[in-house]
Structure formats: structure tokens, C-alpha cells
Design a protein around this nucleic acid. Structure first.
Lengths: 196, 196
DNA sequence: GCTTGATCTGAACGGTTGTTCATATAACCT
DNA sequence: AGGTTATATGAACAACCGTTCAGATCAAGC
């Protein structure tokens, strides 16, 4: 059999990516086989190669797509006046964006080491671009006299780690809504960079 | 050939664990083969099974040993008066401990999903025990009126994530010493839970 | 209605995986 | 010195890996 009813590139393509994303997030890139992905899609392993040149390209494409989306969404976000308001915007944006796509976030942090060097460099540059947005806010706030952040580089690392950590414990339908979580985190972030 | 000069269980055993720790940290549990570990030790793959029943037990033993060491060290640490001082102690202890053994920390966070369910439960219980120490400090500080932390559970997650994040960027011999890093993090932590 | 091209199957490729085991050797004990 | 035992080899096992490809099948275009 081949080309069973309704099968089509427009359908199978995204399904391959979805299955790969889910499986990579759950078991890890190295632990997931192409046959496993194919089974999830309902297809033989060979058919996957209509949609990706190889397994590595599939991982890279997922990460690349995610980072593109992240940067695009961030650049489209409003840019209020004042470092404090911009920091609040960053915090809320980051938490919302991360909690909306936990699997993509997860593999973006876990599977970096499974990227070939060239692919790794691309993703790493994108990540740096995003993180430097936060550092810039901290620098501005320091210059404005709104923050007390002697080492903005280090503080940006600390805050990013704290915010990204939400994904390790948050479960939809839990005790708190996303907005409540964002409120609490924003409160801690605000104080951590405040003067005094 | 077998039993080449000076080879001994007391020597090979730790070398197997060291090699596994290093390789798991660098490439990930699933991506590392027993033959790779054996090569690093300078031995054939079969010989590894004198030191571990199987690959899974090797991973579990590494994580288990690490968590035991963590809990033991924490319980041996001084317990000063007052929640503020105890929080400072936790922050400095955590940063120092983590930066002292980056590989063990790394696999403890990355390879949890590669543990069989029973093994996972053991490690998870240990981690919870450690993290609840922080939450207890926050609760005490809240009761003392020294902190403003409405949700201590959530705040403990946030702080742990922030502190553990140090390992992703810190490199020995860099711009800052461990103590300088700890100073900066403690300043942020202190403010983030302060009143105001 | 026939042809063309996209899509999939199913088998095959060489290579690697974790693990076992009979066998050999070197170090220790008496 | 001789016997015992821990320790290692190296070959073998079945299973699985990523990837390729000829051939089958279906949908669409003329």
C-alpha cells in the first residue's frame, strides 16, 4: 500500500514535526528513533525522508523554527517607556511565551548539545540575541537610576534562569493561572534589581 | 590478555564511574555507549560489568551518590540564627556546591528522564528534600516578618532555578571568583524576598 | 481515460547497541 | 611454589540504528 486515502504532504509534514517535537521532549533526541517517530505519525520510517534530509536536520529545524518564532514575537511586542515598564514587559512576555509551548522550550534547552557545531552556532546566536534584550533593559535601568545592578550581564543570566525555571514545575490547570504566576515572578524580579 | 599490570578493582571501579560521569555530562546518557566508556577507561566493554549490573544502574548510582553527598553536606552545614542568615547560608552553599561539581549537577538535571520509574522516584524524593529546606527558610522568614513572600513554594522554585543557573555560564578562571558570584547572587536573592 | 508526479511501502544496507560468557591471566594467600 | 580467585579479554548474541531505494499506489492535470 501507498498513498492511503487523504494522505498528503501538507498533512504529513506537520505531523512529522509534531511527533518529533513531542518525542524529543519526552525521551530526548538520542533516545528517539526515526521508526518511533514514523510509528507515531502512522507511516513507515522511509517516508520521513520526504520531509527531512536526516534526523539531525529535523532537530535543527524544530529549534530554528522555535527561535525564529521567539525573536519575532519579542520584536513585535510593545516597547513601553522606561526601563521598569520594559522589564515588566519582558518578564510577562517570557513567562507567557514559555508556558505556551513547553515542549519546544524544553528541547531548546536540553538538546543543544545534540546539534552539530554549525547548527549549534546558529541557535546559540539567536539565543544570545534574545538574552541581550534583557541585558539592555537592565543597562538602561541602571543608567536611569531605576535599578541597582552592578553586573548587568550576570543579573540577566540570573533572571533568565529564574524565569525559564517556571517550565519545570508549572502544569496547566494547577493552583495558579499563568497571569498569577507572572505577577509573583514580576514582583520578585522587580525587587531583585531595585535599589536597596 | 587479562589483568594487565597493576589493574585492580579499587582502581578500575572509580575510573569507570569517572568516565561515565564525564561522558554522560558531555554527550548525554542515551548517546554514550558502554564501549565508549570502556575505551575511556582503557578496557573492553565486557569488563565494565564487573562494576555495574547494567548501564541504567551506572547512571542511577552516579545520581544517587551525588544526591547523598548533597544532602549530607547540607545537613552538616552550620545553621545560624534567623531566617536571613540561614537564607544567605543556603545561597552560598548552593552556589559553591554546584560550581564544585558541574558534571554531577548537569546530569542530575538532564538525565532524570532516562531513569527507570523506580530509580526516578528515589532521586526525586531526595531532590524534594533538599528543596524543601529552602522553602522552610522562606516560611520561617515570612513568619518572623523578615521576608515578604506570599507564595513560599513558588518562591523556592524561582530561587532554586536562579541559583542553579550559575552552572550554565560560570567557567573557572573567568572574570569572577566563586565568592564574587555568590556575593552578587546573594544580593539579588536578599532583595527579591525583602519587604517592599 | 491516460499520463505524470507526488507519496508511501517494505525490504535491504552496514554498522552499533547492551549484555553474556567461556577462557585466559596476573596477583594474592598459604 | 602452588592453588585460588579476582579481573580482564574477545567473540558472540539478537535487536535496533539511520538511511537508501526500487516499486507500488493514489491524486491531479490534460
Amino acid at each position: 500500500m501507498a498513498r492511503t486515502q487523504g494522505s498528503h504532504s501538507d498533512i504529513t509534514g506537520p505531523r512529522v514535526r509534531d511527533a518529533a517535537l513531542r518525542l524529543f521532549a519526552q525521551y530526548g533526541y538520542a533516545a528517539v528513533s526515526m521508526r518511533q517517530i514514523a510509528r507515531e505519525v502512522g507511516v513507515q520510517a522511509g517516508a520521513l525522508y520526504n520531509y527531512t534530509p536526516d534526523k539531525q536536520a529535523l532537530l535543527f529545524s524544530l529549534l530554528r523554527g522555535h527561535m525564529d518564532e521567539l525573536l519575532e514575537a519579542w520584536e513585535a511586542a510593545p516597547r513601553p517607556e522606561g526601563a521598569v515598564a520594559r522589564l515588566e514587559g519582558f518578564v510577562r512576555f517570557h513567562i507567557r511565551f514559555n508556558l505556551d509551548r513547553p515542549e519546544a522550550i524544553f528541547i531548546s534547552y536540553m538538546e543543544l548539545r545534540n546539534l552539530e557545531p554549525g547548527n549549534f552556532a546558529v541557535i546559540e546566536a539567536q539565543r544570545k540575541r534574545y538574552e541581550s534584550a534583557l541585558e539592555e533593559i537592565l543597562r538602561d535601568g541602571q543608567a536611569e537610576g531605576a535599578f541597582s545592578v552592578p553586573d548587568t550581564r550576570l543579573a540577566s543570566y540570573a533572571l533568565i534562569a529564574m524565569l525559564t525555571g517556571v517550565n519545570t514545575w508549572y502544569r496547566a490547570g494547577g493552583r495558579l493561572s499563568i497571569e498569577e504566576v507572572a505577577d509573583i515572578y514580576w514582583d520578585m524580579v522587580r525587587k531583585s534589581v531595585a535599589i536597596g
